[in-house]
Structures are given as C-alpha cells and as structure tokens.
Design a protein around this nucleic acid. Structure first.
Length: 723
DNA sequence: CTGGGCATCT
DNA sequence: AGATGCC
C-alpha cells in the first residue's frame, strides 16, 4: 500500500471539488435530514482554528515555579509521566512513559505530581475565556486544545480592509488562482488571527502553543501539529490530499479510536486509502448509515461538524485510581475524600447539581483495563442547596450515604471485591435562578448574601438575540491592528472573564482566581468529620440494626450523621436483600497482579507499538515520525512566508523527505529552511496523488447535533460578549 | 506500575 | 448505564 496514492490517482480537480463543494452540493441522494436549518446555509468555506498548547501541564508548573524551566521536568500521575517539558524531551523522555523508564533514561528528571488538576483546569479555562473574548465560537477539547470558528471575523476583516490582499501571504502561493484567491485570502486572514491569538495567550497568560488554520475542525487539528512547539500551520485546500492521504494509520484520524480502528481492521481496512475506497454499504453494515458516512467523510477530509461552544462544563467529577481497594471502610473514606474536593469545586462553580453518580472500576484479569460501572441518583434538593450555599461539610456528610447506597448497588461487600478506581460526579448542573423549587427565591436570597461576589447583573447583554447564525453580531476585536482604541483583553482576563459575566448573571460563583498562577488557596478539606457524637452511643445502641453486608467495625468509625443515614429506611430499603452476617469479616483474597497485557487482539509488534504511541495522541509528532509511510508526495512549487518563518503547506506526515524530522526542521533558521525546501523541491516528486474516487458521492448528512445544545449555549453567549 | 478528566451517542 | 473517544 506504499504506492496506493499513485494507484488510485485520479483527476485532482474533480476530487477537490467534491470535497470543497460538499456542503453546497447535497444532491437528492442525501436521505437524511435537510441541511441545518438552525443556522441557515452554512458558509461554503469556514475558517477554523485549532489551538494546542505545548506540554500543557508542564508549562503550568513552569509558570508556578520558573526554576523548573531549566531542568528536565516530568509531570507525574501515579506511575506515569503524563507529559514533560522540552528539556526533558531532548533527554529522551516521552509522554506516557513509566516513571521507572523515565528515571532510567534521565536520572536528573525532576518530577512534579500532577494528579490534582486544579491549576491545570483553571489555566485551561483562562485560555478558553481569552479566546472567547474575541469570538464566542470556541469549543474545548480536553484541557489544552480549543477549536474556534473565525469565519465571521474573517468576513468582517475582509469587508473592512478591501486592500487586505496586500498582506495576505508573503512570497508566493503555489497554484494561486484568481478564482480561488478569496479562499486563500480568508485562510490567510485566519492565519493572522491565529497568530494574534497565540500572541495574546502568550502575553496575557504566559503560555505557548501551536495553531492550525483550515476549513474544518478535522483539518485544522490535523495540521496544527505540523510544527512544534509554538508554531502554527495553515492548510491550503489544494494540500488536503497530502495531509489526509499520508496519515500512516486510521488511528491518526480524530474520531477513529481504538475500538473503531479494530472494527475497521476486521473489515480489512488498515489505511486511510482503504477507508476511502471501501464501498459505503460495507461500512453501513457494520456501523450504521450515520457512522458509516461520517467515517467515509473523515477519510477524505470532510468534516462539517460545527464548532460547538463549550461554555461551562456540564459535569464535574473527581476520581482516584489505585492498585487495590477491598474494604468498605477504605471505600467510604475515599468517597468522602473525593466528595469533599468535589463539593468545594461545585460550590465555586455556583450551580446546583441535580444528579450524583458513582463510578467504579473493578480489577479483572480478563477485562483488565476498562469496563467501569456506575450508578446514579437524583440529589435531594436540600442537599444540593447545601452545596451551593457553602455548607460543604453538611453537604458531604449527607452525600456520603448517598454514595454508599450507590456503591452497594454495584458491590456486594459481603464478598471479596477489588476496586482500582472510584469516581464521583455531579451532573445535571442547574444555574440558580432556574427555579429548583418553590422556595427557590427565598433561599437564593440567603445564599446570595453569603456570596462574596456581588451578583449584580452586568447589563452587557445589550446585544440582541445572537442566535445560531454564527454569532455574526459579536463584535470581534480588531486586536493587533490599529483599529479601535480599546484593548479589552488587558482588563478582560484579569478582572472579568466571559465566564465571570455569565457567573454574575446566573449567580454563579465562578472562579475569581487571578491570572497569576501563584495564587493557590489549597483545597481545604471539609471538616465533615469534626462533628462526631459519642461513639459509644452509636455503637452499642444501633449495631443490631445494621444493614446487611455492613461491617460493624467500620460502622463504628463513622460520624454519627453518616450512621444515621445508613440506618434510614430509604437507605436500608435500597440494599440488596442478601442475608449475611453483619459481623462477617471481609475476606480479601490476594489477586495476582498482572504486569503485562496485550494491547489489542492483533499480534504484530507494530500494532502494539502503535497502540502505545497512541495512548496520548497529542504528542504523535514526536514519536511517530519514523512511521511515516515511504511514499512521499510532491512539494508544491512555492512556499509561503509568514512573519519571517517558512510555513509548509504539507501535512505533518508527508511534508518532508523520509529522513527529515519535521521537528528538527522547524527549529532551523528560516533561511536554512528555505534553502532545504528549494533543494527538495527540485527533486520533483510526482505531483500530488489524489487518492480517492468520487468520495461518498457528495451526500452529506448534515450534522445537526448542535441544535438543542447549541441554542442553549448560545442563549448564554450573549453574556459572554465583552461589554 | 495505566491518568484524571470531559463529551456524545445509544 | 455503558461504550467510545478526546486530551
């Protein structure tokens, strides 16, 4: 399949038009729902940015402690280095390497614990908020990535600076045609916006990162990692086939995960080209029409999924993993610990959770690494109010029995068990003022008075509707340019963030942390155990009423409030009706620990290596370069200069001759880069190999997922608009 | 010696 | 409630 690109060569113009017009030409073939009516006809060509912060956790720690900048730094979670700074990378440390291996490879490696995500989460939202202050269409992906739809911003700049052609691209652009000129111009403007936003992120927050500029999310994400770290890359439409066709495996396509890749492999599909060429019907049989079409589209670079504004998170969770947990007492203590932290976070958020969920992962030799189980239940109103009102201790005390009840729905504690993870989660988050109960107004009055923040409505919502039509009404800042006098960022980030505005309007108490990462009120543990009644009383008088499966020795240790809860009818009735002696000690069999496991069903080592590499795709460039397929595609005749740096329109995987590491290349001086480029260019490899036949027949099932959530999110967006 | 989140879909 | 996918 090395030369599959050549084999399937086809008229490129046709191929290109088939993707470019995919949104427009939606022939009668499309049986699905009609194209999104919510936003009207989507713009034929969007401009999408993808931001990806460099080794995010490590950057945050280096900001908190600048001395760490000059040493090899690894962020440790349990026994794993989840990420590391570039000093450490030069010494051979990679992400998701075991601490043992890392220390072996780099004895000087400095480790910082990273299990507490508080600082990372806070910084992450600062980045998102900063982006949102320019344009509300920001979608988070994890803590360190953001998508942004800047189509409207680009249009506005186009309208305002008609002569902007002059600053579009420096140098030449390969295959630049007048017809397409406006397309390139828009991407060029997008690249300028991306550069300005990266600069804003750097100057305001001190973070560096990469950006990708393209016409959809898939391509923007794929292209953003071409040059790392702290650089950006624009994908021109004519190079779509390069960046797509050269991906070395299906797993590199965002949206194709482990399971999907395995199912595709079972169909004999391993490469992107395989997926491009497989008859749609074959996929439909396995995945259903919707997923099949989506997969086909991804394989040819089509992704019309909208940038869906993330807004505030829809759930808050806290979890811990461990090698073994086998006693109810330990479980209870862990749950209490997790809940204390979670309730504090929930309180800072300000919203009131309506649902609680407990998730566990059991140890299992066969099914070792996934399979979680969960149970959830509504949160009684009076408990939820304790969370928002700041009575965290009370809230935890009352939530623990709730959690234990859910726990016993999953685990029969009269038998031996072995857990490796516990997760507690609040969801169905309700903004106050959204009428939780009839007495909501009164309680909110009280809680409001206790809130340190003034919950005054900031009347920044003067902006009208701003519904789904892309937020065209938002003012986009003409940052960087000489335009307007205001530089809203300087006040926006530090004093009022978009979320803070939202928080005010919804009476959230959304974080007020300053930009400087130094501030960190350590999570103060809730004092839920302090109010403990006389143990003797609880112990002797009620032991005989203990629920089944409950160890009285454990029961004794509990605070009286929890003991009462455990004896409440609601709790007892919910228990499984097993008749076990309450005093039966829990037998804990020793389970042999499995030290190795097969990653997949496949046996060849490349697959395993691949799987390992892909455990964290965010670093794929550094580790997977050598896997670049032997076939190389052509270099375009021209290169693009931007801000003195050479930008390659090629994809990360196929932009260079096989022996050239893009990461190394990116660190060369621009003039050296240019020289190398000219040299390679003259080797004149075959022009572009459009590797697809008429893909998918252009039928596009419009992604309408954002209809419900989108409108909801957008109803909030007007509050985000900078005043 | 496999992290700690988040989201969506079914 | 679980599966799956992303970081």
């Amino acid at each position: 399949m090395d030369n599959s690109e050549d084999e399937v060569e086809e008229d490129e113009a046709e191929w290109r038009s088939s993707w470019a017009d995919s949104a427009a030409l939606s022939p009668a073939a499309a049986p699905g729902p009609s194209p999104s009516k919510t936003s009207g006809p989507a713009p034929a060509h969007r401009v999408i940015l993808h931001f990806d912060l460099d080794c995010f956790y490590a950057q945050v720690e280096m900001i908190r402690n600048p001395a760490l900048r000059e040493v090899p730094l690894g962020i440790q979670q349990k026994y794993i280095i989840v990420t590391c700074n570039y000093v450490a990378r030069e010494l051979g440390v990679t992400k998701l390497m075991s601490v043992t291996d890392a220390k072996e490879k780099c004895p000087q490696l400095v480790l910082v614990k990273g299990e507490d995500l508080t600082h990372y989460r806070e910084m992450s939202y600062k980045v998102t908020e900063l982006l949102m202050s320019y344009c509300p269409l920001v979608e988070r992906l994890g803590f360190d990535e953001n998508f942004m739809d800047v189509t409207e911003m680009v249009e506005r700049r186009l309208a305002q600076t008609p002569e902007s052609n002059s600053f579009s691209f420096k140098g030449h652009v390969y295959n630049h045609l007048n017809v397409k000129g406006s397309d390139y111009l828009r991407l060029a403007l997008g690249s300028h916006i991306a550069a300005e936003l990266r600069e804003a992120i750097h100057s305001k927050l001190g973070l560096t990162g990469c950006a990708g500029v393209a016409t959809n999310k898939l391509l923007a994400k794929l292209v953003s990692g071409t040059f790392k770290p702290n650089q950006q890359t624009t994908l021109l439409p004519e190079n779509l086939s390069d960046i797509i066709g050269c991906l070395s495996s299906l797993r590199k396509v965002p949206g194709i995960g482990h399971q999907t890749a395995k199912r595709l492999q079972a169909l004999g599909l391993v490469s992107i080209q395989d997926l491009q060429l497989v008859p749609l019907n074959d996929l439909v049989k396995e995945f259903g029409h919707h997923s099949a079409q989506r997969l086909k589209n991804l394989a040819i670079g089509i992704d019309d999924s909208p940038v869906t504004p993330s807004g505030a998170p829809q759930s808050l969770s806290d979890e811990d993993s461990f090698k073994k947990m086998s006693s109810t007492k330990d479980v209870l203590e862990k749950i209490q610990q997790l809940l204390s932290s979670l309730v504090e976070r929930m309180n800072k958020d300000g919203r009131q959770p309506q649902t609680f969920r407990l998730t566990i992962r059991r140890y299992s030799a066969t099914n070792k690494w996934f399979s979680r189980e969960s149970r959830q239940c509504p949160i009684p109103n009076h408990i939820g109010q304790k969370i928002t009102s700041g009575s965290s201790g009370d809230a935890v005390v009352q939530l623990v029995p709730l959690a234990m009840k859910l726990f016993h729905k999953m685990v029969d504690s009269s038998a031996a068990f072995h857990l490796t993870l516990i997760n507690v989660c609040f969801s169905n988050l309700q903004a106050r003022g959204a009428a939780v109960s009839g007495k909501g107004s009164i309680t909110s009055f009280f809680t409001q008075s206790t809130s340190p923040r003034k919950t005054q409505v900031c009347s920044s919502q003067t902006q009208n509707d701003s519904s789904q039509d892309g937020g065209s009404r938002y003012t986009d800042r003409q940052f960087g340019t000489n335009r307007t006098t205001e530089h809203p960022l300087q006040q926006t980030v530090t004093t009022k963030s978009p979320f803070s505005s939202e928080a005010a309007l919804h009476e959230f108490k959304w974080k007020q942390s300053s930009v400087v990462a130094g501030e960190d009120p350590p999570l103060q543990r809730v004092h839920c155990n302090t109010e403990r009644s006389d143990p003797r009383e609880a112990n002797n008088t009620v032991t005989h009423q203990l629920p089944p499966n409950f160890d009285p020795e454990v029961f004794k240790l509990l605070p009286s409030e929890i003991q009462k809860e455990l004896l409440s009818p609601a709790y007892v009735n919910s228990l499984p009706s097993t008749s076990t002696s309450p005093s039966a000690p829990v037998a804990v069999p020793s389970v042999p620990h499995i030290t190795t496991q097969s990653l997949t069903d496949s046996q060849n080592t490349e697959d395993i290596k691949e799987a390992v590499n892909e455990l964290d795709p965010s670093y794929r460039m550094t580790t997977v370069n050598h896997q670049r397929p032997p076939s190389t595609s052509a270099f375009p005749g021209e290169y693009v200069m931007e801000e003195g740096r050479l930008s390659l329109p090629q994809s990360s995987d196929c932009g260079f001759p096989g022996n050239v590491d893009p990461e190394v290349f990116s660190e060369l001086p621009p003039d050296v880069q240019r020289e190398l480029m000219s040299e390679w260019k003259q080797q004149k490899l075959v022009p572009k190999t459009p590797s697809s036949r008429k893909p998918g027949r252009g039928l596009m099932t419009k992604d309408k997922k954002a209809a419900g959530k989108g409108s909801q999110a957008n109803s909030l967006l007007k509050y985000f608009k900078p005043s």
